[in-house]
């Protein structure tokens, strides 16, 4: 017998797959009116703002936030454009 947490995880992952499957078709509609680069940039500006708010609230509640090890800085700098670039290139 599998625990209930597995079922909720599976449902969550199913939701993820559904959203990721639907999104490109929805974005394609937006491209009829918006330049893809403008769309990407607005999207990532809003996403960055949201991430900052979430991390700020998390930090205020005593959670781990803004404690970046100096050794990790180069990897984060390399990962950032790679993630955003690949996401924005296509998805």
């Amino acid at each position: 017998m599998r625990p209930n947490t597995s079922r909720s995880t599976d449902l969550g992952l199913l939701f993820v797959v559904l959203i990721w499957g639907l999104s490109p078709s929805i974005f394609k509609i937006a491209f009829t009116e918006l330049d893809p680069l403008a769309f990407v940039f607005v999207r990532f500006l809003l996403l960055s703002a949201l991430s900052l708010v979430v991390l700020f609230v998390r930090g205020r509640r005593g959670g781990k936030a803004w404690r970046i090890a100096r050794a990790d800085v180069p990897l984060l700098i390399v990962s950032g454009p790679r993630a955003t670039g690949s996401i924005s290139c296509s998805i």
Binding site: F44, L47, S48, L55, L76
Partner: peptide, 19 residues
């Protein structure tokens, strides 16, 4: 959330010259 925030901030800044 931390990793997402850090990589997004760097990524958005790198997109800025085109965006």
């Amino acid at each position: 959330p931390e990793l997402m925030c850090y990589t997004l901030l760097v990524g958005t800044l790198s997109l800025a010259p085109f965006g």
